[in-house]
Write a protein that binds this DNA or RNA. Structure first.
Lengths: 114, 114
DNA sequence: GCAGACTAAAACGGAAGCGAAACAAAGCGA
DNA sequence: TCGCTTTGTTTCGCTTCCGTTTTAGTCTGC
């Protein structure tokens, strides 16, 4: 159970956003990041349909985000051989590293919140 | 001093992003949110030039973000009467409420992180 | 006063995201 | 087999953001 006050939350958010903006690696949209986090933190398998329902957005939103993040190497796609209509979204080393850095960044900024 | 583990940080991030995506009020870009948080959390006065230096982005980025958030009513602009080249960025009630909701949202999600 | 420095905004072309609708491929049920 | 559903992608027109460059207004030092 993680407990923090609203002021601490906003300060943490500011520090994290600031670090994100200053780092000039390409930053993801809110939707893209939500998808990436779901793929890596929720148990597989992940399908376009499943993610769309989970985030309550339309399927093209998922497809487009996967296109973009696929080019970035943060996720990869594979056909489901058991039901070839489905596409399974898979993790990549690069995506793991990306989220690892994000987690470390948040932890680091949290340490500086009084 | 706020202490959390990388796994907790990512889970918190996921929950917050998910809540943000599901809520269908217009979500801000990373840059816009960073600007908004700086305006509300850092001591005034805030100028375009100052914010650009603080975030390490170009001035048009700030101008455009202020345009967008101004239309949304989250910030307002006023000429500095002491040096009329400057524009002072000011807080609004609506902006305060927006960040209050954001803070509460993060606190709420944090409470569900094990 | 006036040239030069400074500040913010506007203009420009390009890239990327959006929702809605159309589409192709695969499974399913009679 | 042959419709019908399901799944993911593509297309369309539109909006928004991007970096760069240009413009307009304001100070400042001589």
């Amino acid at each position: 159970m993680l407990s923090l006050r609203p002021g601490q939350a906003l300060t943490l958010w500011q520090k994290a956003m600031l670090a994100q903006v200053r780092a000039d690696d390409p930053d993801l949209t809110t939707r893209q990041l939500a998808i990436l986090l779901s793929v890596y933190l929720d148990p597989p398998p992940h399908t376009v349909r499943g993610l769309a329902a989970h985030l309550r957005v339309t399927k093209p939103v998922i497809t487009r985000a996967l296109d973009t993040m696929g080019i970035m190497g943060l996720v990869s796609r594979r056909r489901d051989e058991r039901d070839r209509r489905n596409v399974l979204i898979q993790r990549t080393v690069k995506g793991s590293e990306y989220l690892e850095r994000l987690g470390d960044l948040v932890v680091k900024q949290a340490g500086e919140v009084s």
